[in-house]
């Protein structure tokens, strides 16, 4: 199988600060990759590079066989969709209006959404179990409900790659679980390739096929959760003493702070 997203030796600097150095990665359809690492290790920057909002100074990215620098913002938004951690809406929009914004990259400048766009948006809301609040104001939703609407908006872009930047950081346990379960079932059903940046090591361990552990802007380890999430690796990267054992439910590695 051909990778949907290819990252080749990319490097990124903010001014003098080298944020990411020599990162390479192939992402395949239907796969969920978790990116772990302490604050400032370059996780979010890597995700923004994958979304094309930032451009690397060195190296190349390719999505669906096309290099990023040859694609317009709209074309990129049809290939990759981002779900950010928390979004503040200052203006009042209904949930369906928010999800319809995901159709923007598919529409011409003056074009209105048609029946097909509405169907796509409704299906997206249905897959994230958010159909019931379609016509409610985005302001009236709880954090977990809003996150489901934002995932629906990303789905409405009909992307091949979905990028999630700490999608669960403001959510309680129930909604954290819900978001990870949702993303994992979407990736299975639609063959979506998913990249999640998260501080929830246990959830990443449980739901991701592959894990990338970043330290100071470089890949420290990459592989299956079992290969990457070991007490030595976690202690080295997070500089915090931990105990890693096996989660009795999933059989995946589980991290406890010592």
């Amino acid at each position: 199988m051909e990778p949907i997203l290819k990252i080749c030796n990319i490097g990124f600097r903010y001014g003098d600060k080298q944020v990411l150095d020599d990162i390479s990665l192939d992402l395949y359809p239907g796969e969920i990759i978790g990116i772990l690492g302490p604050n400032g290790s370059g996780k979010s920057t890597l995700l923004r590079l994958m979304d094309g909002v930032l451009a690397p100074q060195r190296g190349e990215l390719e999505i669906n066989g096309k290099p990023y620098d040859r694609l317009s913002r709209k074309e990129l938004a049809r290939e990759a969709a981002m779900v950010s951690q928390e979004q503040h809406f200052r203006f009042s929009f209904s949930c369906i209006e928010v999800v319809m914004m995901g159709r923007f990259p598919h529409l011409k400048a003056m074009q209105f959404e048609n029946k097909n766009d509405l169907t796509v948006a409704m299906d997206a809301l249905r897959s994230t179990h958010a159909l019931e609040f379609a016509e409610r104001s985005i302001h009236d939703l709880s954090g977990g409900e809003r996150q489901r609407v934002l995932i629906a908006r990303a789905l409405a872009q009909e992307p091949r790659v979905m990028l999630l930047d700490e999608p669960t950081s403001f959510l309680d346990l129930k909604f954290k679980r819900e978001v990870f379960r949702l993303v994992s079932s979407l990736s299975k059903e639609k063959g979506l390739a998913v990249v999640i940046v998260s501080h929830d090591i246990d959830l990443v361990s449980q739901y991701c096929n592959r894990v990338i552990l970043l330290k100071n802007g470089s890949v420290y380890r990459t592989g299956t959760p079992e290969e990457v999430i070991t007490s030595k690796n976690i202690e080295d990267v997070y500089e915090c003493p931990v105990l890693v054992d096996q989660n009795p439910l999933s059989g995946r590695p589980r991290v406890s702070v010592r």
Binding site: V53, K74, A77, S84, Q87, F89, M101
Partner: peptide
């Protein structure tokens, strides 16, 4: 209105 970065992600220049 929903944010510059988000707008950029959705394909808005």
């Amino acid at each position: 209105t929903t944010g510059d970065e988000i707008a950029s992600q959705l394909g808005v220049n």
